[in-house]
Amino acid sequence: MINYTLEELLAADMSRTFKDGELGFTGLATGKAAATYITNIPLAAMELAKRTHAPNLDIWLCGVYANADWSSLDRMPESEFEQEMMYLPCEAQEYDYPATPYAARGGEVSFGFGSGVQVDKEGNINSVCIGDCRRPKVALVGSIFLTEHMALFGREYIMMPHHERRNFVEKVDYISGVGFPGGRDGRAKLGLRGGGPAYIYTPRCIFSFDEAGKIYVKSIHPGVTKQEVIDNTGFDLGNLDNVPTTPPPTEEELRILREEVDPKGILLRMDHR
């Protein structure tokens, strides 16, 4: 029996969804839970994929740094544009903003990672407010780049560090990023060029969307019960009887993650090692 962490489980599972030759995009999120889900797990997953089946996967950090070399870092940077970041070793560095309009607007970004305080059963996400946006009950930070992620990228991985009823709702209070309102047909009518949400990763399970654009539980993590997923999701999930368990990382995947991708433990915590 191999020991692994939840973060390693998610990173390994995610890495298998990337294809060779794709372009992945992620920002530097701040705050421990957000940084783990939006930045660190995706980076570990992409680096793992590069070392297994996808050597031509290119990673763009903050839309600025292409294929950065992390080995020189002793901790993950927390600020995207602090002076030190300018010297992050990488292959290409975009100076002018929006650094990625040709890639984002041109549909060249294969996938990105986003999050919100709420996500709903249509895959819409909200990072603007709880309540009416004219006078909200709770003001959040704003849409930032999520609107573009969900509309222009080939697909989006929605990364939710918390999986509670208040995060997984029937209908979000504000649509910062558009999923599949009215299913895939409904989305097609909106004229969005990008693919929209493909997966939602949470500490309890992984969601995906079927051919009609309907959300379903793709797998439940080892040790999590079906009832737990139902109890902590604010919309109906249907019958979960045939939902598989999220496949654990292989010994080789864990070895690459721990020895090659993240030997200093700056992406994924090391307390289990």
């Binding site: 709770v138 003001a139 849409s143 930032i144 609107t147 910062s176």
Partner: peptide, 20 residues
Amino acid sequence: RRAYEGGEIEVVHYSEMMAW
């Protein structure tokens, strides 16, 4: 946050790239 929740300021939301 206080001013937005208190109705003291109007907030018009744009997305990041569009705002540029």
